[in-house]
Design a protein around this nucleic acid. Sequence first.
DNA 1: TCCCAGTCTGCGGATTTCGCAGTTATGGGA
DNA 2: TCCCATAACTGCGAAATCCGCAGACTGGGA
Lengths: 174, 174
Amino acid sequence: MHSERVASRSAEPRDPRDSREPRNGSPQPDAVSLAIIEQLQEDGRRPYAAIGKAVGLSEAAVRQRVQKLLDQGVMQIVAVTDPLTVGFRRQAMVGINADGDLEPVADALTAMPEVEYVVMTAGSFDILAEIVCEDDDHLLDVINKRIRVLPGVRSTESFVYLKLKKQTYMWGTR
Amino acid sequence: MHSERVASRSAEPRDPRDSREPRNGSPQPDAVSLAIIEQLQEDGRRPYAAIGKAVGLSEAAVRQRVQKLLDQGVMQIVAVTDPLTVGFRRQAMVGINADGDLEPVADALTAMPEVEYVVMTAGSFDILAEIVCEDDDHLLDVINKRIRVLPGVRSTESFVYLKLKKQTYMWGTR
DNA sequence: TCCCAGTCTGCGGATTTCGCAGTTATGGGA
DNA sequence: TCCCATAACTGCGAAATCCGCAGACTGGGA
């Protein structure tokens, strides 16, 4: 039954456009690793043997690949919740405009524990940051006293969450 | 096998104001369950026995509570990645303004596989939606042909992702 | 007081994880 | 082309974990 071995490594094209991605040294996962990630996006606790059966590898091989993906930071296996249902009362997306290099601003945001998500964007905001707080006072404090005073920050605009409708991590499976 | 459940939580079928819930089924997990969630936010594969030691319960009790949290849709255990590092080339946040009831618009967005995140907000956008696509054409198609034509949608504004700086799921631990 | 539903504990048996040694494939370099 | 170093995969036994179940405990409500 080895007639159909999955092209496991560099035998496969691995996408011609991946020439630039030298950023953090984390290479593009190949097709098999993507399949493993998909399995774990469906159920983060799925046994390695079951994953192996699905992607055509032995249990040990899956285990080694998962460990490598975790070590490289390509993937994390975690519990996710809707913060609004577990005690956090105020959540907001904040659009930020800043002068000059955005990196220091983004790094400062990243360092804040209330900030869960930071992304640099093209468009009328330079940075989007998602904030999770316990109440209005807390939220106001973070935005007003900690974000708006960061060097370079020119303006902010806040979008307070009213209801989370969808939160998926299964983009690979469609 | 494992619990194949977990998946079908996207549309949030539960009404937040539902009246009948015995005790623990409430939208507010108790302190012990929150502690369990925190453990699993650090490592989604942490053994039940280790969690039990950390929160002061037996292995079996932890297992039962985790299963209930999963069944209730309070929490999911999944693999998360930065889509930009695993093959998806274009990602964007889209701010949407619409007329009248926003629910149908939000539901339509929720039904789209490229839409990973939908939240109704207060502020100059009514809805924020995060979109994951394979390339520019795909992204344009989703925004232009599928979102902007939804009944009630008045306008959209897109923020294309340049670099994801932070993505955390450990708000509980601080 | 009795009953009931919900939760916890303890405990085997089944399953999974883990570490390791051996084998195979890949990519250069001489 | 040959050969070696590295990386990846497999198989397997031991240890750890998961899982289902039965019994005990608890806090209301009738």
